[in-house]
C-alpha cells in the first residue's frame, strides 16, 4: 500500500506555535504519526526535546493527548496504559511511546526490553537525533563515531549501537527503521505496524540542525543523505521476514552509495574529521559492517513457509 501525498486529507495535523527549534525533525515526525494513525493515539513521552516542544501550561504544542513520564519508565508506563484501555474496553486506541535516543538506548533500555519481552501491545518510536539534545548535546549510545558533542569535544571514539538489530533479537513481531527524509516510507510503516498486535518498534532517524550544526533548511536533505550513503539503511522485520525498503535497496551495492564525505561535510559536528582520511575510513568500515549484518539477516530471515509460521507466532 503506497502512500500518495494527494490522498492525505487537507486538515491541519501539527500544532503551530510550539516551542520546537526551526527545522525540528521531531515536529515533523509527530505530524507523520497523526497522518498515519489518525486521532485515536495517546503518546507517552519520557524526558527529552518533546517534553519541551509542548510549551507552557495551559496550552500544549503537540496535537495529541500525552502522558509525560520520567526517563527510565516510558515503555512500562505505556504497557500499563494499554492494560487500562483494555479494562475500559477501548481496543481501538494506539498507545505510542515517543522517546529520544537517550531515553531508549541508554536510560530507558531496561523498561523497553522488559516491555518487548512481555510483548506488550504498544508502538515504540525512537526519534533518534544521536545525542541528548534537550540537555545540551551530550553523547548518547546512539551517537556515531567521530561526532562532536559537548562531552566528546574531540569526537566520539565508539560506534553507534545497532539498536534495531537488538530489537529483532527480542523476537518481537515488528521492527523497522525509518527516516524523516522519507515521510511516505515512515507513514507506510506506521500503518503496517498499526495492524499488528504486540510490541512494535520503529527507529526514526531525525537529523537535528542544532546539535548536528547544519542549516535548519537542510533537515530533509541530511536525512536523505544518511540513507544514500548507507549510514542509515531502511528496512523492516515483519513477523519473521526481513526486507530492505525500496528507498534503501539500491545502496546494497557499495558502488551506488554516495561517498560518506558528502554526508559529513554538511554537518559541523564532523568538522574536525573531514580532513582526516583515517577517521573517515573507520566510518566506512562501520557502514560495510552494517551492510554485512543486513546481508546476513536478509539471508537468515527469508524463511520457508513452515519457519515463517513458527516465527509469526505473535500475530
Amino acid at each position: 500500500m503506497v502512500v500518495r501525498i494527494q490522498d492525505l486529507p487537507r486538515r491541519r495535523y501539527g500544532m503551530p506555535g510550539n516551542a520546537a527549534c526551526p527545522g525540528c525533525p521531531e515536529a515533523m515526525g509527530l505530524r507523520y504519526i497523526k497522518m498515519a494513525l489518525g486521532d485515536n493515539v495517546v503518546l507517552v513521552i519520557p524526558a527529552g526535546c518533546s517534553s519541551v516542544i509542548q510549551g507552557i501550561w495551559p496550552k500544549s504544542g503537540i496535537n495529541f493527548p500525552i502522558l509525560n513520564i520520567v526517563f527510565a519508565s516510558a515503555a512500562s508506563a505505556a504497557a500499563g496504559m494499554k492494560a487500562a484501555f483494555e479494562m475500559m474496553g477501548r481496543d481501538d486506541v494506539h498507545v505510542v511511546v515517543w522517546a529520544g535516543d537517550g531515553g531508549t538506548a541508554d536510560i530507558g533500555f531496561q523498561s523497553m526490553s522488559g516491555a518487548a519481552e512481555r510483548n506488550d501491545d504498544i508502538i515504540y518510536i525512537v526519534a533518534d537525533n544521536e545525542a541528548y539534545m534537550n540537555t545540551g548535546i551530550q553523547r548518547s549510545g546512539l551517537t556515531p563515531y567521530g561526532a562532536w558533542t559537548t562531552t566528546t569535544p574531540l569526537g566520539k571514539k565508539e560506534h553507534k549501537k545497532n539498536l534495531p538489530f537488538i530489537m529483532i533479537a527480542h523476537d518481537v513481531p515488528y521492527v523497522a527503521t525509518a527516516s524523516v527524509g522519507y515521510p511516505h516510507d515512515f507513514i507506510e510503516k506506521l500503518r503496517k505496524a498499526a495492524k499488528i498486535r504486540g510490541f512494535r518498534y520503529i527507529h526514526l532517524h531525525a537529523p537535528d540542525p542544532v546539535g548536528w550544526r547544519f542549516d535548519p533548511s537542510l533537515t530533509p536533505k541530511v536525512a536523505q543523505l544518511a540513507v544514500k550513503t548507507g549510514m542509515w539503511p531502511l528496512f523492516e522485520y515483519d513477523r519473521g521476514v526481513f526486507r530492505l525498503s525500496p528507498f534503501s535497496k539500491p545502496y546494497k551495492d557499495p558502488s551506488k552509495r554516495t561517498p560518506i564525505i558528502e554526508y559529513l561535510k554538511l554537518q559541523g559536528r564532523f568538522r574536525h574529521i573531514i580532513d582526516k582520511p583515517e577517521e573517515i575510513k573507520k566510518l566506512e568500515e562501520y557502514v560495510d559492517r552494517l551492510w554485512y549484518w543486513i546481508d546476513a539477516l536478509e539471508k537468515a530471515f527469508n524463511p520457508s513457509e513452515k519457519a515463517r509460521e513458527l516465527l509469526s507466532r505473535h500475530a
Binding site: 503551530p16 506555535g17 510549551g55 501550561w57 495551559p58 496550552k59 500544549s60
Partner: peptide, 17 residues
C-alpha cells in the same frame, strides 16, 4: 495535576522568530 490542552501558540506567536 494541571492538564494542558493542545492549542496553537503554546510558545507564543512564533512568527516573530
Amino acid at each position: 495535576a494541571p492538564v494542558s490542552h493542545p492549542a496553537p501558540g503554546a510558545a507564543g506567536k512564533t512568527g516573530t522568530w
